[in-house]
């Protein structure tokens, strides 16, 4: 992903192992006065978004899940959470392979990407 801003405050925040407790992920735009209001809104709405993700997952609504992931992919980087955007993009890609191409996707992989994304979602904070 091209991103000119350095992810300065994202120590070890790679969406690798979902079992690890991810440390708080701070927005790289937290000090940008024109951004701080909408980042706060983005963070405050995150629990609702997580609930939506979980709901889709439990109902196995993969199309809707792919769309949520797609939207988060676009938003994550924009709000200063590039790792979040990347994790959402990864999940979207895997879901697309499954839904559109009918490619055999290991459920374990899907589960792991889903968990990684939700961990990241839970970890975000403004600063």
């Amino acid at each position: 992903m091209p991103d000119n801003d350095k992810p300065a405050a994202n120590p070890g925040g790679r969406a690798g192992d979902s079992r690890e407790r991810t440390p708080a992920t701070r927005s790289i735009f937290a000090d940008d006065p024109e951004m701080v209001d909408i980042i706060e809104m983005f963070v405050s709405e995150m629990p609702q978004r997580i609930a939506e993700f979980r709901d889709c997952w439990e109902r196995r609504e993969l199309d809707r899940l792919a769309r949520l992931a797609h939207q988060l992919k676009g938003a994550g980087g924009g709000y200063g959470y590039p790792a979040l955007g990347e994790a959402a993009g990864k999940l979207e890609q895997t879901l697309k392979q499954l839904v559109e191409d009918g490619a055999p996707v290991a459920l374990a992989r899907l589960q792991s990407e889903f968990n990684a994304l939700l961990d990241l979602c839970r970890s975000i904070s403004v600063r």
């Binding site: 209001d37 909408i38 809104m41 939207q71 709000y79």
Partner: peptide, 14 residues
């Protein structure tokens, strides 16, 4: 024109 309200807010701010 974007289906994501997050992108609307982002561009309004930016």
């Amino acid at each position: 024109i974007d289906d994501s309200v997050d992108v609307h807010r982002l561009l309004h701010a930016r």
